[in-house]
């Protein structure tokens, strides 16, 4: 298909055409099969991006549901969150899988590393993209993009650059850089990052940071600190309470 129809299709999808031009698009779609295929492909691409972003936003809200709410206004009452069907389904599946795996491990006593492998999975990216500032978009969104693609070395490097840039207001960078560090086996660095993150006033993923710190300490074989962090998570309802209780029984 020649490039000549691209502008027409783009303007059509963005509702920028006048009445006559719209009729021309409709006429072409009726009479020219090649044009119709191209138009459908552009429509579907737009829809695919919308769906992709919807799913991403949904994951973001599901992750919020997992946390105790922080009120916008301290005087305003808040309700405890329920859990979505999919979240519950995924949790049940995860717990069942962990249960089965842990049962099989129990046949021969599980090592801390075995338990780490059972319990660790990277936290989903719920922070991207936050800012549209011109100088930030490339590096900021790219860092999260690498993280999502499991390119942890690249993500780690870009998160490091972002932390040097004082104009970027995204405390979650500490958290995601911490998980990237875990994946690169930079365990002390990961623990330091989670602690810095927990010190941020606007940190939303505090329980998550504790959970990942606990897993890092588990990997290091630091039983005292691992159990202390798990006990904190086990004591209150919220993110990973069930897993923390279970892991405390196993370690």
């Amino acid at each position: 298909m020649a490039n000549k129809y691209q502008d027409l299709i783009d303007d059509y999808l963005r509702d920028k055409l006048d009445e006559e031009q719209r009729r021309e698009v409709e006429r072409l779609a009726d009479t020219n099969e090649h044009f119709r295929t191209e138009l459908d492909f552009h429509k579907q691409t737009k829809l695919a991006f919308a769906n992709q972003q919807h799913e991403r936003l949904k994951k973001r809200l599901q992750s919020l549901s997992d946390e105790a709410p922080k009120p916008l206004n301290p005087n305003q009452p808040t309700n405890r969150f329920g859990k979505s069907f999919w979240f519950v389904a995924a949790t049940v599946l995860l717990i069942s899988s962990i249960g089965l795996y842990v049962w099989s491990l129990k046949q021969s006593e599980a090592s801390p590393m075995d338990l780490y492998i059972v319990y660790f999975e990277p936290y989903p990216n719920v922070a991207l993209p936050v800012t549209r500032d011109e100088t930030q978009l490339n590096e900021h969104s790219l860092a999260y993009s690498y993280y999502e693609q499991a390119e942890y070395a690249k993500a780690y490097e870009l998160f490091e650059n972002l932390l040097q840039n004082s104009s970027i207001d995204d405390p979650e960078i500490f958290f995601y850089k911490g998980i990237s560090a875990m994946q690169l086996n930079l365990n002390d660095e990961a623990i330091a990052l989670f602690n810095k993150y927990k010190g941020e006033a606007t940190a939303k993923l505090e329980r998550q940071a504790k959970w990942y710190e606990a897993l890092t300490r588990l990997k290091q074989g630091d039983k005292v600190q691992t159990r202390k962090l798990l006990q904190y998570l086990a004591d209150d309802p919220g993110y990973k309470q069930t897993e923390a209780i279970r892991l405390l029984k196993q370690y």
Binding site: L57, R60, P71, T78, P129, V130, T131
Partner: peptide, 29 residues
């Protein structure tokens, strides 16, 4: 494009939405 706004709205409106919606649908999930 500040997506933290959606978090704040989600948290702030949830109580009133659920109070209304529970009258129509009795399924928390």
């Amino acid at each position: 494009g500040d997506e933290r706004a959606i978090d704040e709205i989600y948290i702030a409106s949830k109580g009133r939405f659920l109070a209304f919606a529970r009258k129509l649908l009795n399924d928390e999930n």
